Computed example of a mutant assay.
Amino acid sequence: MTMVAAAMALGASGVGAYQLAPVPAETSAHWREIAWPFPRDGWPAGRAFRCDGACDGAELYVRAKLGFCNCDRGVADDDEVDRVADLDLISPRFAATAPGDPLRVDELEGRARHYDLDMPDGARHAATGIALSRRCDLMVAVVQGAGEARTMQRAAIEFLQTQEMKRWVVAALDGR
């Protein structure tokens, strides 16, 4: 009922209202939702979060890319993570620091890979690109910040495994 009222009040679609819904307390301990910071492109906007806890201001960007995955192989290699993980939205200057690792988050499987980002303001950030597939669809995420890449990755994956985020990912991959 709240989402319907929000959609009517804001003139937003049901999907937009769902994306604007507040994050429950269980997921706000360290991560708080912020506005999607990137311009429109060929994919729907996702959700963005900032960590105010142990991950020292890291930001996490998550979105679905429907029909954008090899239906038979899923996310098969690091080149695919490089192509789909939205790192180029943060900075056009990014470089992988090592080969990626297989990753499973709930029913989604894929890969995670660490990068160095040269930020537009001259700062250097660490990032982890994550690409996970379900059938022919992708869930991509990037966590980036001034902290250590593995620490930020652990915090992001822990957050992605919360019930609220799992529900949102399933809804986004189902096109809702």
Results as ranks from 00 to 15, higher is better:
M8C: 12
L10S: 14
G11I: 05
S13G: 12
G14F: 07
V15E: 15
A17L: 07
Y18H: 08
Q19V: 07
L20P: 00
A21C: 03
P22Y: 09
V23T: 13
V23R: 04
P24V: 06
P24L: 10
A25P: 11
S28L: 03
S28T: 14
A29W: 05
H30M: 13
R32M: 07
R32H: 05
P37Y: 10
F38A: 11
F38L: 09
F38S: 08
G46N: 01
R47L: 10
A48I: 07
R50G: 05
D52E: 14
G53M: 08
A54C: 05
D56W: 08
G57Y: 01
E59Q: 07
R63N: 01
R63P: 00
K65D: 13
L66F: 11
L66W: 09
V75G: 04
V75R: 03
D79V: 13
E80M: 11
D82K: 01
V84C: 04
A85S: 15
I90D: 06
S91G: 03
R93S: 12
A98G: 08
A98P: 01
D101M: 07
L103W: 06
R104W: 03
R104Q: 15
D106R: 12
L108F: 11
G110H: 08
A112I: 10
H114I: 02
H114A: 12
H114V: 06
H114Q: 11
L117I: 04
P120D: 10
D121E: 02
D121F: 06
G122T: 04
G122R: 04
G122Q: 02
H125R: 03
A126T: 10
A127T: 03
T128L: 05
I130R: 02
L132R: 05
S133N: 11
R134F: 09
R135N: 13
R135M: 13
C136K: 09
D137G: 09
D137P: 08
M139H: 04
Q144C: 15
G147E: 03
E148R: 13
A149N: 01
T151N: 03
M152V: 10
R154W: 09
A155C: 12
E158I: 10
L160H: 10
Q163E: 14
E164T: 14
R167L: 10
V170T: 06
V170A: 10
L173N: 06
L173Y: 08
